[in-house]
């Protein structure tokens, strides 16, 4: 039996009757890097919302490491080991790069330990190492507000890693980046995939080709349309019809 990190069974989410997710089944193994693609409105972001507890499922259930996530508040799900990166970079603009990372690297996130605790030297070293990994050492003490879009993306991925989650959820990490920055982020994700399970949602097919080593899942109208290796998915007639479009004549 393989070790499933995430299993989703018959998941339906409806907003006032509109089914954003419709009877969706999904599972992935620990250590996998899964890319999810799909046209606009396919339910990709809702999918992440349900896993992280932002939206409650109408029907069905989500199991993380075998545990049902129903009615567990967001911060507890995060502490269980699911980290999420949002579509637009959401870092704390009025804190410096180092402070941003220090805040998430904090081991005990209850009120009083946060008030009276100091960052331990291990935490400080972790943060310093992370700053180097995301390549922001020269700007470690600048406010995040002053970073460029690409740097913010990298900082946010660094913040995810600082939580040391088992499962990383990454929503369109390449949105709004230059080609060079996209390649950087792709390389960063691939190096992270060595030690984490990752679900990446993406639109940019070039980028998907770069990072999709394992399976790709295609969502359409709230359910899984097909699943498989990149080459398989690319040539699936249904996927071409709803999402990719006909390849240009050569």
């Amino acid at each position: 039996m393989t070790n499933k990190i995430l299993e989703i069974e018959n998941l339906t989410v409806s907003f006032d009757g509109f089914k954003a997710l419709n009877n969706l089944n999904f599972s992935m193994n620990a250590g996998e890097l899964r890319v999810i693609i799909g046209p606009n409105g396919a339910g990709k972001t809702t999918f992440l919302d349900v896993i992280t507890g932002k939206v409650q499922p109408t029907k069905g259930r989500v199991l993380f490491k075998g545990k049902n996530l129903k009615k567990i508040p967001e911060h507890k799900i995060t502490r269980m080991g699911i980290g999420r990166k949002f579509q637009t970079p959401r870092v704390y603009l009025n804190l410096t790069v180092r402070e941003n990372l220090d805040l998430v690297a904090n081991r005990n996130k209850n009120v009083f330990p946060t008030l009276f605790g100091y960052s331990s030297s291990t935490e400080k070293r972790n943060v310093a190492g992370l700053i180097e990994t995301i390549g922001l050492d020269a700007k470690a003490d600048l406010l995040a507000d002053l970073l460029s879009h690409g740097e913010k993306q990298r900082l946010e991925i660094g913040m995810l890693v600082a939580q040391s989650p088992d499962l990383l959820l990454v929503d369109e990490p390449a949105a709004g980046l230059t080609d060079e920055e996209t390649a950087n982020v792709g390389a960063l994700l691939l190096s992270l995939a060595e030690r984490h399970s990752i679900i990446a949602i993406e639109h940019d097919m070039e980028f998907v080709r770069q990072i999709a080593q394992d399976k790709v899942t295609v969502l359409h109208q709230g359910s899984v349309l097909c699943e498989g290796k990149m080459e398989q998915v690319q040539n699936d007639p249904r996927v071409i019809e709803v999402y990719l479009g006909e390849p240009p004549e050569e």
Binding site: T52, K54, P73, E74, T78, Y92, K109, Q163
Partner: peptide, 12 residues
């Protein structure tokens, strides 16, 4: 600045 983000950083 961003309360939702704080939840997803593991704080209540």
């Amino acid at each position: 600045d961003d309360e939702t983000r704080v939840r997803f950083s593991g704080y209540d």
